[in-house]
């Protein structure tokens, strides 16, 4: 079965170092999924192209454009995510946050996510663990232990960037391929939310008898 991994990038310039890093990570994930005997389809979402749609969504009380609806569906139906942002003012960029603000709160339940960030200097590297990781924890995603941070110098010098990419990609590939094997042990009694909703469909409907119970006087 072909797995789908959606690659979310929030770089603004073209070409951007954020997209450059995202492509390296995505290639590594492809290779690692392949090494586990499965195929992967990568779906790239450049948030720059959605900037107008996101502004519309935010300023119209939450009406999604057709393009934003498509991307929300794509994200929630994916088997895994690679999320890459540039560091702006000590955190992920506003555009990056705006996209995740525009998702349904159940859009990423249980989603394997690899986080990565770029910046001019390595001094910003804790953005991965102090900003991105809590964001995805809130959305109930499963963030792989290794985050990938690339400062400008990493694109030239001899650093361990590619080793980190390989390790993170291996962690993500394991989760993306392993999803099927986890299922099948019977109903989940933990109350864990595993179903993902993009917000396009209405979701499960509660029968009125259950809604009225205890409220009929």
């Amino acid at each position: 079965m072909t797995r789908t991994v959606v690659v979310i990038t929030a770089g603004l310039s073209v070409p951007s170092s954020t997209r450059l890093l995202a492509d390296q990570v995505a290639d590594a994930v492809s290779a690692q999924v392949g090494a586990r005997g499965e195929a992967v389809r990568l779906e790239h979402v450049e948030l720059r192209e959605l900037a107008g749609d996101l502004a519309s969504y935010m300023t119209s009380g939450g009406v999604p454009t057709a393009r934003l609806s498509e991307v929300r569906d794509l994200v929630s139906s994916a088997d895994g995510m690679i999320a890459v942002t540039p560091v702006f003012t000590a955190s992920y960029s506003g555009l990056f946050k705006m996209f995740f603000d525009a998702l349904d709160t159940d859009a990423l339940n249980g989603m394997p996510v690899l986080i990565a960030a770029t910046a001019g200097t390595a001094r910003h590297s804790l953005v991965l663990d102090h900003a991105m990781r809590p964001l995805f924890a809130y959305l109930r995603a499963v963030v792989v232990p290794t985050g990938v941070f690339a400062a400008t110098e990493d694109f030239g010098g001899t650093t361990d960037l590619s080793a980190r990419i390989t390790r993170a990609a291996g962690e993500l590939a394991g989760l993306v391929v392993g999803t099927d094997h986890v299922a099948g042990f019977g109903p989940d009694a933990s109350g864990r939310r595993t179903t993902r909703t993009s917000g396009t469909d209405l979701g499960p409907v509660t029968d009125f008898a259950d809604l009225l119970r205890g409220h009929a006087g």
């Binding site: 935010m58 300023t59 119209s60 009380g61 454009t65 057709a66």
Partner: peptide, 16 residues
């Protein structure tokens, strides 16, 4: 109020 300073009149007419 609600949608001002956001989508254009034309876009909003398509969306809604």
């Amino acid at each position: 109020p609600v949608y001002g300073h956001g989508p254009s009149l034309e876009d909003f007419s398509t969306m809604t």
